[in-house]
Design a protein around this nucleic acid. Sequence first.
DNA 1: CTGAAAGCGCTTACAG
DNA 2: CTGAAAGCGCTTACAG
Lengths: 345, 345
Amino acid sequence: MTSSSITLADVASQAGVSKMTVSKVINKKPGISETTRQRVMQAVDELGYTVHASARALAGGRTNTLGVVVSSLDSQYFSELMRGADMTARDAGLELLISTTRASHEHRNIGRLAHGLVDGLLMVFPASLVPYERSLRTLNLPVVVIAPGMQESTEQHHFPSVDADHYSGARQAMQHLLSLGHRRIAFIGGPPHLTPSRERLRGYREGLLTASIAPDAELQVTSDFSQRSGFQAARELLALAEPPTAIFAVNDVSAFGAIEAIKDAGLRVPDDISVIGFDNIPQASQVFPALTTIEQPLLEMGAAGTRQLLNLIQGVGAVTDRLIVPTELIVRASTGPVWPVDRRM
Amino acid sequence: MTSSSITLADVASQAGVSKMTVSKVINKKPGISETTRQRVMQAVDELGYTVHASARALAGGRTNTLGVVVSSLDSQYFSELMRGADMTARDAGLELLISTTRASHEHRNIGRLAHGLVDGLLMVFPASLVPYERSLRTLNLPVVVIAPGMQESTEQHHFPSVDADHYSGARQAMQHLLSLGHRRIAFIGGPPHLTPSRERLRGYREGLLTASIAPDAELQVTSDFSQRSGFQAARELLALAEPPTAIFAVNDVSAFGAIEAIKDAGLRVPDDISVIGFDNIPQASQVFPALTTIEQPLLEMGAAGTRQLLNLIQGVGAVTDRLIVPTELIVRASTGPVWPVDRRM
DNA sequence: CTGAAAGCGCTTACAG
DNA sequence: CTGAAAGCGCTTACAG
């Protein structure tokens, strides 16, 4: 059922030249006279010829395609990452092929997916890469990891990676809340086995420490990054004998849930309770009140990871083993000064 | 820089058989003795062999891969569609390759992306396909369109399509609100050139008609499907001399915006104003109050579209030119009975 | 049950 | 500036 397609040979005979010449023209190789070039291009247009990707890949030894492997497509920030990757890939004349791990999960064999299909792999991986290591290794293909969920020891994965500075972002969030006068600050954490969760928690704790605030176990609750779990976590916090005046949520989505819970309790954000998120997903600026948050430069992360991969493919070598991109405080409307204590009673 | 990979020939010599035999084994073809099979499999494992996708595609005439072309990755409902597509594709032993149109947009030439790479194309297309028609046609590849944004005339595209029953869904939404006693019902519409917007609007209008309610132009506002525009649209409605008691939003995301605007105005959902959405994206059940909405069976749509495509590829032919899947009312917490007029004053 | 040969549609050195 | 030949790594008829 494969289409009886037009081949190079068809174009060649139509244009009255050799296949080689057609190949040179469509690949923009030098050493072709302008008249020949035009004749060939006309034949290409008339016949509606497109190169057969597999044939080209097999003969040429490269596919001009970058594979992107993601564990799931519903992560809100995924599209930003992809925009960055797409931009750099396109500038370099490469296509981007996205695939979910689900598809090859059964065998944990990325090779099935990648061998002969792509020149390199961008792993967008919020979880552990360990199960895929062996196949990644025998595949012998350049690999770059973006936003690794687990900080494997360098020995273990030694794939170059790109990640945001979670710790510094968390410190900035805390600094912001502290500077607004908050001292009773809660943290809605993420799954504790994931590096981003841990680093952000560390930023929270050390932020308190530097402000000489004793940590209060009651104020530290956990979410699974979802809106629903953020909602429930905030409810717990609101039920406390002495509720927080500010909540630092491990990600924007759980912050949305927290805001709902606060509104639902008849309180207002930020008047009664301030909320700060993390990620700066597109929605953060669209909700009401617009969310103060820490920006992960997702677009740049996607672009930088792709650039790294391109370097590896071209044999230039990775510029750095582990690129950490800075995060940034984005102040919007969901945070404000703490109420004087007497006013709150 | 292509990896110096293990080939069929390597496996063959390691196992002491011909390449053909290895090929038969890895493709699970019949007519191989069990001992030979095991010997080959052992060699495959030892060498970490994976088939070269391009070579296989070129020789075999098919790629065992389905291409999915999407206009954007940030559409919230996209991942559900993909889950359905992925399930059916995997059951049939095919891989799924996702690509955004951005990548090939420049030339509007899907061929560059697909020829020799995939056996068929699933177009997830909320916009017009017309710009891609020519390349789709000369490509001569099976194509199925999911959730078309524009209802091209059948002559124009005659690609089999799968779509939700927008009109009937809108009628159900109206029926629900009417049965709760609402008569002053607003509609936050979508971009008027898109079929889903139009069909849902038609359902709104005809719903009013059947209830003998005169349409009020003031109650019909427009959004671009975004949360922000839903927020603004609802603000306009709330500013009316006589605001609505219920809002039917063209999609869930704009409904979220509307709910924010209502809360922000110091009113409650559904106590003061009921809100119903459309789509039933995962988030709809996570927000507070949980959103009453119309479910588009996205998972089934993805699965059905993929099934259709599989049929086309296998030469079975499309079961139907235009599959319309039913939509369903999902009652949650954002809608309730209208207040008696005296109570509202 | 096993294998030698041809060929899929290109690109890559290499000649002229 | 142009082209004939070889070969990329497989699968597909076809023999034995």
